[in-house]
Write a protein that binds this DNA or RNA. Structure first.
Length: 117
DNA sequence: ATGTTGACGCATG
DNA sequence: CCATGCGCCAACA
């Protein structure tokens, strides 16, 4: 574990099923070594690595459990990810969305993880 | 090296 | 609710 990206993946890796974290929170957990936007970039890089061999890729890291601070999804800007995929994956874990693709953040936030780190 | 862009966040209007 | 502006930092041309 050397690069900040790997630290991001290591955190995302630990998010339990049905729980989520936000970009800004992860950024804070890294002690400002990477901005919230940087976390977003790490996720984007993850999607690209899904084909390449490597320790972390879209297959073994639950990237869909990372959302923005408003409880909304933001993957629609990334062409590498099918529209609605993230929402679908999260709903499969029991997370509900309203008509605006928004979820109740506090009730699904991975608080235990925040305490540990 | 430099300017632009963006899976972001927060404050303001 | 939407639009800007500023801070942030990695990727890209």
């Amino acid at each position: 574990m050397s690069s900040v990206y790997e630290q991001v993946y290591a955190i995302v890796w630990r998010i339990p099923k049905g729980k989520v974290l936000t970009y800004g929170l992860i950024s804070n957990m890294l002690n400002s070594r990477l901005s919230a936007q940087g976390v977003g970039w790490a996720m984007q890089a993850l999607a690209k690595n899904s084909n390449k061999p490597g320790k972390y890729n879209a297959t073994n890291v639950p990237w869909h459990r990372v959302i923005n601070s408003q409880g909304r999804l933001s993957t629609h800007k990334n062409p590498d990810i099918a529209p609605g995929l993230q929402k679908k994956l999260l709903e499969a874990e029991g997370i509900k969305f309203d008509a605006e693709d928004k979820m109740n953040l506090p009730s699904h936030l991975w608080k235990e993880g925040l305490l540990e780190l």
